[in-house]
């Protein structure tokens, strides 16, 4: 890493810490910044309510937002490198749609089976079906992208999958009862606040392991920018790497989708922005970079979504509003090159 890149990392860490401290201390109940340290170490001489607000609401929210942003960004990076398509991400390629379909099937399909209504079974089922939906979509994509070459085909496929799954979801919605529909629709709005206490541990463990495993592939990812043929000529076992990457992507994005809903845009924006800022294609730098930046963007969205007391704008709405200008800017910048 050169000097400039080190500075960028330092700035990102600073922004991250600032965002965390704002979210941790501000809100319906403000915690004075100078007392924040005492809250962290759970010192006994501070108001109980501060401890509760921080440890039970804000801390899980911060961790969930950071990890969700980080893992979606890593998914986006892995898919952009793997498919060699700058517009690839779990949302665009329909992995989210697959996960949504899985979750919809689970939420609305289990309403007739009483013994599955237990809350922890519901949660577990949601995670499982979100991951399953993601894996199936990715395998289909992979299969089709092998048979039909061309970069735009992939994006079209993602779109088609999206319509396909929303078709089924619409049918499910039209036959389900209002309560189930509401549950599902709330889930699609996206939120980092639903990952509370008991769920946080599983969520964090799975994502942290997933992120760590993705680092094992940084060397392979670096070579993959040369394309499949060069990678093979350099001794990379394409098939093995392919399946590992699909599993990591599906698990990371599936878990986030299950817990936080289908979070949009982070996966596509972050790798893109970070590459532009850092001017490197080295995944040794890109991986930690998109983890930081993805976390920052998610926390920023979270901050804005609950900026106004009592009124919560859905995270996906915030991200949509943020994401559109970035994508347009990208297309604008590349308007001379062939797109797809």
């Amino acid at each position: 890493m050169d000097k400039r890149q080190q500075v960028i990392f330092k700035i990102m860490i600073m922004i991250l810490l600032i965002l965390i401290s704002i979210i941790a201390t501000r809100g319906a109940i403000n915690i004075p910044v100078d007392k924040f340290g005492s809250v962290l170490i759970k010192s006994p001489d501070i108001p109980e309510v501060w401890l509760q607000v921080f440890w039970q609401i804000r801390f899980p929210k911060i961790v969930a937002a950071f990890l969700a942003g980080a893992s979606l960004s890593v998914c986006g990076l892995l898919m952009q490198t793997f498919f060699r398509n700058p517009l690839a991400d779990p949302f665009v390629l329909g992995v989210h749609s697959g996960s949504s379909l899985g979750v919809a099937l689970w939420i609305m399909g289990t309403s007739y089976i009483p013994f599955l209504m237990n809350e922890s079974i519901q949660n577990l089922g949601m995670v499982f079906f979100a991951i399953l939906g993601g894996v199936i979509t990715l395998f289909l994509l992979l299969l089709l992208s092998k048979q039909i070459p061309g970069r735009s085909v992939l994006l079209v496929m993602g779109l088609v999958f999206g319509h396909f799954s929303s078709g089924i979801i619409n049918i499910l919605i039209s036959v389900s009862d209002a309560n189930k529909i509401k549950n599902f629709l709330l889930w699609t709005l996206g939120s980092f606040q639903r990952v509370s206490d008991d769920r946080l541990l599983i969520f964090s463990i799975v994502i942290i392991i997933g992120l760590m495993v993705s680092f094992i592939f940084k060397k392979d990812l670096n070579v993959m920018v040369l394309g499949e043929r060069y990678s093979k000529s350099l001794g990379l076992s394409i098939n093995r790497t392919k399946y590992f990457l699909i599993c990591i992507t599906a698990i990371l994005s599936g878990v986030v989708t299950a817990f936080c809903g289908p979070i949009v845009f982070i996966g596509i924006i972050t790798p893109h922005l970070f590459r532009k800022i850092i001017q490197s294609s080295d995944h040794t730098i890109l991986l930690p970079g998109v983890i930081l930046l993805g976390g920052i963007i998610a926390l920023f969205a979270e901050l804005i979504s609950s900026f106004h007391d009592g009124m919560i704008i859905p995270v996906n709405a915030v991200l949509g509003l943020l994401g559109v200008p970035v994508i347009i800017a990208f297309l604008w910048k590349n308007r001379k090159g062939e797109m797809g």
Binding site: R275, I278, Q279, S281, D282
Partner: peptide, 15 residues
């Protein structure tokens, strides 16, 4: 290969 310097591209040969 945007974001790769000549030397980075050459270095990929050491994979």
């Amino acid at each position: 290969l945007s974001g790769l310097k000549v030397r980075d591209v050459v270095a990929l040969g050491r994979y």
